[in-house]
Amino acid sequence: MSLEILQAKSDLRDLIDSYATLTDAKKVSEQMLLFTTDARFKVYFGDQLVSDVTGTKQLEEEFNGHVALVKRYFTANAQHVVQVDGDSATGVVFSQVKMVRDEEGQEVLTDYSVQYHDVYIRQDEKWFIQERSSHYIIVEARALQG
């Protein structure tokens, strides 16, 4: 494996970890800087497509709507399998995302096991997410105690 590919994989890992960190901090406008302006973002629960958004303007509106409903996020990224081809790449990220919301005065934790299927592009020596398909594999919700 060449030094260039190793550097690209490291940069891409930083990109997906930045996405998760900004999600947890609810910094949506900063998160949009990780995407190309024409980015496409899809969400699947099982085999069902529940959201398909194109462009960071629409994506930011969508994300802000979700963030308004969530008290806290906690994301842990695991495997990141990447194929680099020059200034483009594809990858799959395995993540655990926890969200805490208020429901009728009770804090409810929803735990998501997610696979992100990504297309990345390098522009001006910087990597961006051009396409992201979020596949929610396991979803569990429960009331928090105490």
Rank of each mutant, 00 (worst) to 15 (best):
L15C: 04
R122E: 10
T110D: 06
F74L: 14
L69Y: 03
F74K: 08
Y19I: 02
D124M: 10
A78Y: 13
V139T: 15
V100F: 05
R13Y: 10
F74E: 06
D47H: 08
Q115W: 09
Q123I: 15
E62T: 12
Q130Y: 10
E30Q: 13
D85G: 07
E140H: 13
F128N: 04
V139A: 06
S10I: 10
D111G: 07
E103M: 10
L6E: 14
S18H: 04
S134W: 00
T21Y: 10
F74M: 14
A25V: 06
V119D: 08
L3V: 11
N64L: 15
T21S: 13
E60S: 12
R142V: 11
R122W: 07
E4K: 09
D118Y: 10
T90I: 08
A78P: 06
Q106A: 13
Y136G: 01
F128K: 05
Y44F: 13
N64I: 04
T75W: 05
F41L: 03
T36H: 00
S51M: 09
Y73I: 00
R101V: 07
D118P: 09
V81P: 03
N64P: 04
I137A: 12
V114C: 06
G46Y: 02
V67Q: 04
F94Q: 06
A143C: 11
L15K: 00
L59A: 06
F128I: 01
I137R: 07
S113F: 08
V139P: 03
V53G: 00
D111M: 08
E140D: 14
V84Q: 03
L22A: 00
A25I: 07
T37E: 15
T36Q: 07
S29P: 03
L6N: 12
V92I: 12
V67A: 09
G55F: 00
E131V: 06
E61D: 14
S51P: 01
G65W: 03
T110M: 04
K71W: 04
I129A: 10
Q83A: 14
T37P: 10
T36S: 07
V50T: 10
K42G: 07
Y116K: 06
V67S: 00
E104P: 00
D87K: 10
F74Y: 12
Y44E: 03
Q31N: 08
Q48T: 09
L59I: 06
Q31P: 04
W127Q: 01
V93D: 04
T54V: 15
D14W: 09
E103I: 08
V43P: 01
L12D: 02
E107W: 02
Y120R: 01
H66L: 15
N64K: 13
S88I: 12
I137K: 09
Q58E: 15
E125N: 15
I5C: 08
G146V: 09
D11A: 14
A76N: 14
K126C: 13
S2A: 12
E61H: 12
Y19P: 00
D111L: 12
G65Y: 05
T54K: 14
Q83Y: 06
R72G: 09
L69Q: 14
A141H: 07
F94T: 11
G91Y: 00
G146W: 02
L33F: 00
F41I: 04
T90E: 11
A89M: 01
F41N: 01
G146T: 11
T90C: 07
L69H: 10
L6I: 13
S95Y: 05
T56L: 01
E4A: 14
F41E: 03
N77F: 03
L49Q: 07
G91L: 00
K126N: 15
Q96T: 12
